[in-house]
């Protein structure tokens, strides 16, 4: 058991290491010079060289990468003497553009992205599973057909399009919901929810579409299985058959999908956040990419990768609970 866990954690770390290396490699090649930003105006060759040295960018690429890894484990110091900048372990780098260490920057954005992702996930799970089960039980009825048509539409529509249409219709034309911005929960829970209503609904609509399709087909398949027939033959009530036996079987693939979706969303819904002007991780990452803030890019991708890896591990754990056959494999 312990060996299994150790293996699992080792695998996770390896994945993260590869993600870090690839990110570093790609951005190292991007033709831009962060030192130039720190050089001032007018900028001279000497100033440029000084800025490079201070940011630790004058050493070879492999050295910069290992410096980063050492920093994660043991912390780092930039510069020397009275003006040195200390970045305590775990130091995922220091953003010279924002004058802050990367961990702090990410921590500031986490509440926004988590509010968005978790709120939307609750909505889409309730509606996705509910509608999917109903559609399967009423197979062939008008309800089923409408649910299916709507879910195909949901699967086909890109998030920025639905988001923008939502803003256009409910924000501008009807003027019933705010169209962007974020208010912290601690400041005003009502405003917090009210500002997030549109993004939640949009994200939930698009995701629920996948869940309706998945749950419906899975449910239909399950209802034909022998053990359901046995249960029915034993005289169990229909609600018990569906609610306990069939649903349990249906939830397995749903759990996998939730793991992947949520793991991805928590790392930053880049486009959703940009459409709704939400200051979340996605926006932080995209800005960092655009301004070539390499330490911040590395930190954000690693955090996103970490969430995905953890989500996958949790999915496996849930599998064990839901499906005794999958335990310990």
């Amino acid at each position: 058991m312990l060996r299994l866990i150790a293996q699992r954690i080792g695998g996770m770390l390896l994945v993260l290491l590869i993600v870090a290396f690839c990110t570093f490699a790609v951005f190292y090649l991007v033709p831009s010079d962060p030192a130039q930003l720190a050089c001032g105006r007018p900028c001279t060759e000497q100033n440029l060289a000084l800025a490079r040295e201070f940011m630790g960018m004058d050493s070879p690429w492999w050295r910069q990468f290992t410096d980063f890894l050492v920093g994660v484990a043991a912390g780092r110091t930039f510069g020397s003497g009275a003006t040195a900048i200390h970045c305590a372990a775990p130091c995922f780098g220091y953003s010279f553009q924002q004058n802050t260490d990367v961990v702090t920057l990410i921590a500031e954005r986490v509440p926004v992205t988590f509010s968005l992702a978790i709120g939307a996930a609750v909505l889409w799970l309730v509606f996705g599973i509910g509608l999917g089960v109903l559609a399967a039980l009423r197979r062939g009825t008008a309800f089923d057909r409408i649910a299916l048509a709507a879910s195909v539409a949901g699967v086909s529509a890109p998030v920025y399009l639905v988001g923008l249409l939502g803003i256009l219709v409910f924000g501008f034309t009807l003027d019933v919901v705010p169209v962007g911005g974020y208010v912290p929960f601690s400041e005003s829970p009502v405003d917090w929810a009210w500002r997030l209503v549109m993004p939640w609904i949009v994200l939930a609509f698009l995701h629920a579409a996948f869940y309706v399709r998945l749950v419906r087909s899975q449910m239909l398949e399950t209802l034909n299985e022998d053990f359901i027939r046995t249960a029915r033959a034993k005289g169990l009530s229909e609600s018990k058959v569906v609610g306990k036996h069939a649903l349990r079987n249906v939830l397995l693939p749903v759990v996998t999908l939730v793991g992947i979706d949520l793991g991805g969303l928590l790392g930053g819904a880049v486009i959703t956040e940009s459409v709704f002007s939400l200051p979340g991780l996605g926006g932080l990452l995209i800005n960092a990419v655009h301004s070539r803030d390499l330490p911040l890019v590395l930190g954000c991708t690693l955090f996103a990768g970490f969430l995905v890896v953890v989500a996958n591990a949790l999915v496996d754990l849930c599998y064990g609970v839901l499906d005794p056959r999958a335990r310990l494999t």
């Binding site: 001032g40 100033n47 800025a51």
Partner: peptide, 24 residues
């Protein structure tokens, strides 16, 4: 070097500015 990035028209004009690395 820790505080570069501002307007630096004076840096090239002051005698000895090219080699100077700050008071710290």
């Amino acid at each position: 070097p820790a505080f570069s990035g501002g307007l630096g028209y004076h840096k090239q004009l002051l005698v000895g500015g090219a080699e100077y690395r700050g008071p710290f």
